[in-house]
Design a protein around this nucleic acid. Structure first.
Lengths: 341, 341
DNA sequence: TTTAGTGCTGATATCGTTAACGTGGATATC
DNA sequence: GATATCCACGTTAACGATATCAGCACTAAA
């Protein structure tokens, strides 16, 4: 590593103390304007770059927030990330990005890394494998602000930012019920992940409300991606003809795409033979054939909101916990049986 | 911030020196097995988390690499990011993610931030606005390893990882020529960005090779996203009928999507009235109507390769510059006029 | 003239960790 | 029995920055 210029180097060159250099470069009072100018000029001339590491050590503050994301492939996360980045940038914070790859162990390592790097706060969406509750609790106990987004963990004293998953799932299921589908299936997310559970609850409540029978055979766990949706849909389509669903609520859009693939492969028509709806509003949803009816999640807003909440906790040193719901909306396209585009 | 446990705290509790604690926790020789065990146990008990900041200060090494990405919305970047993350994780490095948002000023700030954070190396894809050449040169001069990926800057002594943009653009243009299209247009990327220039060159060379006339009216700058493609295509379609293109090479898939939208809005059929091809192989490319013929870029591989190159430079302290080309392939679908799938 | 205040600058300690060298005692070697 | 070697552990300094307190020159007020 090429030797970097330090405040000391600047100080020596000008035959002053490093303290004066520090004051000048950080725009603090106690330096004459003339001296300040000379210092800034020399700093530029020497190509000085402040050492944030040393600064962080003494100030006990890194201006960095840590992010744990379970899966980069989901459109939702890069989009949320963009929201997080925008807000952080405005506040002068930077991001350390880690990736759990839906793996519990790797998530645990990621959190410990972020603690070691002394981030000022953590934003996390838990892995599909279900969370490291104890690890989260340690973070909370250590007084390190942590905010969950999308896939949350409630009741451990941390803020959560998410859409109203239950309500939205209910909404989209009701939409199918209004189409008079009778055997509505659900490709559900994992039990251990909040959104899997909540969306399932929404689906179930909609059925109850309209006095449709809940049928456990029609609920298949699918994980969160295309392939899981494909496999799960295959299971449903392997049922005896009379037991097959006439409509499907997928836990998210990738699952719905997998389900669409499976359905088409068997020569079945969507929505004529089976209606399928998703959840996310992935960019592909509007251009797939047929265009997918889904819930628009506003990932960008979720990211922004989560980052704001975290920064509030960091900067106000408050430990006030909030449970924030971001609006989501039903986007009606054609895969549900509606004609409109 | 809750006070964190330090090696000193552990040392006091065991009535030993902090040096012994450091040795034990870092698996270094010079500590009896019994003592090591006691130290590790106490560390766990107290919930010790090493302070990577202090460590970095003394070791002059952060195990962190900085990333500058121009636009999160392009599918390419999250995918490249995934490749980068996988490789870094294997090597025990972490990522600081910054986002230039295609803005030159913001990119410049991002680079300075990364230098201040004393990252061990930088991976960058330059902003659409064209790069801060001087800034890059400063980084190189400071001896900080930097690798460009996808959107590169050549000739300043930094490694580059990219696909053979010129060759691939030529390939896809040739494919159109073989379809016997005569008036082939190009929606081109910005002059100041390597891939814009290279792809344009490839397009031009293909025309030359087949003795097709190059027509400057048929080349319109489109930027890199949907809307730019839409606007640029509108310009082409506003030409007198006889001057309109019968085929279009878009600089990337988002542009192609915009062009498709514009074309469809005018009631023109793709590929019958106008063929359109893209570049990227965005997830939407295979499901749009008609499925888009494009160049598959293997963003994941580009990310992986760039990260590997950077880590090699970091760990071997070599300043050997490489210009690495990642294979890309033509993906033939229907928007070019082929029948297949 | 003395006192107090103000404006600029410097000396020293500190953040948490590790490198480099030092020490004391047990064991091995001749 | 003297010397060398090795092991386990300790002491000190350093990384690069800032906080804190102190000092010095000068001005204003008493």
């Amino acid at each position: 590593m090429g030797k970097r210029i330090t405040v000391e180097d600047i100080a020596k060159q000008l035959e002053i103390s490093s303290m004066t250099v520090s004051r000048a470069l950080n725009n603090r009072p106690g330096v004459s304007e003339e001296m300040r100018k000379r210092i800034i000029d020399t700093a530029k001339e020497l190509g000085y770059r402040p050492n944030q590491i040393a600064k962080s050590l003494v100030l006990k503050k890194t201006y960095t927030i840590g992010i744990v994301i379970p899966k980069m492939e989901h459109f939702f996360f890069p989009e949320a990330l963009r929201g997080i980045e925008d807000v952080s940038y405005e506040h002068g914070y930077h991001l350390i990005l880690t990736h759990s790859n839906e793996d519990r162990e790797r998530e645990s390592i990621a959190i410990q890394t972020l603690e070691a790097k002394r981030v000022d706060g953590i934003l996390i969406s838990v892995s599909e494998a279900g969370g490291n509750i104890e690890e989260y609790q340690n973070v909370v106990k250590a007084g390190l602000p942590i905010v969950f987004f999308d896939r949350c963990v409630f009741g451990i004293g941390a803020s959560c930012v998410h859409i109203n998953d239950e309500g939205a799932a209910r909404l989209v299921t009701e939409h199918l019920i209004n189409h008079e589908y009778k055997r509505i299936a659900h490709l559900r997310g994992p039990e251990g992940v909040s959104i899997g559970k909540e969306r399932f609850n929404g689906y179930k409540k909609a059925l109850e409300e309209y006095n449709l029978e809940y049928n456990a055979h029609l609920v298949v766990e699918s994980g969160f991606n295309d392939d899981g949706g494909y496999q799960a849909m295959n299971k449903l389509l392997n049922l005896p003809r009379s037991e097959r669903p006439d409509a499907v609520v997928a836990v998210n859009d990738p699952c719905a795409f997998g389900a669409i693939k499976s359905t088409k492969q068997r020569g079945l028509k969507i929505p004529d033979d089976i209606a399928i709806v998703g959840f996310t509003d992935d960019p592909r949803a509007s251009i797939i054939d047929p265009p997918l009816t889904t819930i628009r999640q506003h990932a960008y807003t979720v990211g922004k909101t989560a980052a704001r909440q975290l920064l509030t906790q960091i900067e106000e040193e408050s430990d006030e916990i909030e449970n924030i719901t971001v609006d989501a909306e039903l986007v009606v396209r054609r895969s549900c049986g509606c004609l409109g585009f």
